[in-house]
Amino acid sequence: MAISDLEVLELEAIANTLRQDIIRMLVSVGSGHAGGPLGMAEVFAALYFHVMKHDPKNPFWDERDRLILSNGHICAVRYAAMARSGYFPVEELLTYRKINSRLQGHPHNLSLPGLENTGGPLGQGLSQAVGRCIAGRLDGKKYRVFCGMSDGEHNEGQTWEALMFAGNRKLRNLTTLMDRNNIQIDGHTEDIFPLEPLKEKYDAIKWHVIEIDGHNVRQIIEACDEAKAIYEKPTAIICHTIPGKGVDYMENNYEWHGKAPTKEQGDIALEQLKAEGERIQKEIGGLSKA
């Protein structure tokens, strides 16, 4: 489905809001992951506010699209997208990682309605997504299964077990969105445990591969549309992203993979993000007038 320039800008504005939420959540608890969630803000804005069929008021709706988050550590962005789309009050975001919270540091399916899986130990999500695809096909259901993944978790053997299985079984109802941000905890992916050539690996095991700029909302949406149209294969969307996107001192710095900004650092981050938010609003205003 075609998307207008205005809709693109509106989704960019949402992504900007998610980023501000993420910073507030991390500062509030003093721990968590910054790099991945900030880098995936456009992808989650696009999924929750345009691509996925879902109903925040009815999280167990049988026909909903399923979003499995395999790299559970980036859950801050998912929680923010869920709160902003109406699954729970936005204030609850500040309970993230705190005692008695529904927003666990790594997401727990039973803690919060709308989470489809428990994720954290890398490599486990895609297998669950595959299981849901098999069930959906068996029962003749129309839902799509999306799986958010990291590049780092392609170190795990289980990821490749699941990828090969899905390719062999031609699971066309499966679409993965890989956060190709080139970092993992110890450094750059190509220094730690090189993954390239990635596209060729996916091609060889019978996946349809689309490479996009993971910050380009239009590309994200078009790739998801293309995945829907591919009938013979599962689709991997490799989203090239900048970890820490939107906060200058975090961008492309792997040291921000798994830590939270201090109050002062957070204020600087929010200042930068708010400026970007205002820029997007101005553009929206300009477009609306035209």
């Binding site: 669950q128 695809c133 098999i134």
Partner: peptide
């Protein structure tokens, strides 16, 4: 490992 994970997905 994939087998156990797929089973979880099927169960859900």
């Amino acid at each position: 490992q994939n087998m156990a994970g797929m089973a979880a997905g099927l169960a859900f």
